[in-house]
Amino acid sequence: MSETPQRGSVWRATAIWAVCTVVGIVLLLVLGPQLAAWHVLPAVASDRAGDIDQVLFLFTLLSIPVFALVIVFAGYSAFTWGSRLRPNAHGRPMAVSSRFQPIWVIISIVLVIFLYVYGLAFLNNVNAAPKGDVLHVNVTGEQWLWDFSYPDSNNVGTSQLELVVNKPVEFSITSIDVQHSFWIPALGIKQDAVPGETTHISATPNTIGTFPIRCAELCGLYHAYMETVVHVVSQDDFNTWIQNQEPSAPVMTPAASSLTPIKVPDMAMISDSRRAAGV
């Protein structure tokens, strides 16, 4: 009958949780801004990528106390009351507190609603049609390369993507064989290329530079090599570049096409371009 007194208290565990939370948040505030410089996060080169950084920051900030709560209380129990030997008594049953459970439920609901509303605000940015002077680019995925064309400039077709800094760009994306996914991490955009459908995504690049483009949907044999780079340049440079491009043949219509031999990209060429791009 006699309860042996047990070490440990809820206040001590709470104090450890508070310390862990503070340390975690301080680390986030100190290290967070360095992550892009250390290449843990991709470069931020568009409005959309900036949004994503903010979302990641806020989610991490809120995760710290939640993660610490679960781990500290579970870990505290294990280390304080754990034993390799079989205990010769039972633990004292704990009444299900009529206050604590509702508090837990309400806090988790509030957190979820907060994250949801916060997410909605950014989702609105994602869904918004680009305003003002927009650069249109058609993107076509095929095994295993990306083709681009510029409908605003006589449908100039190219295997190289150039964008104008601070000018919104809207991509219209499709595929001629299987599903691909058009991903530019530095611009914070990703959109599947679906055969027979056209999908859209937009962003405004805000940094001049060269950034990788990758395929993010397993698309067969050389999926890993289906990558290229985007050059974000000034308006003048862009104008010069586009004038030197040949207008492309009219876009291939489905009826006109037939089974074509599969293009196997030259592996040596890919790795060379990868090295040259410094990615």
Partner: peptide, 13 residues
């Protein structure tokens, strides 16, 4: 439930 269960238990590791 998991945390409430092990809290102040006689934990056998």
């Amino acid at each position: 439930v998991a945390i409430g269960t092990i809290w102040r238990g006689r934990i056998w590791m």
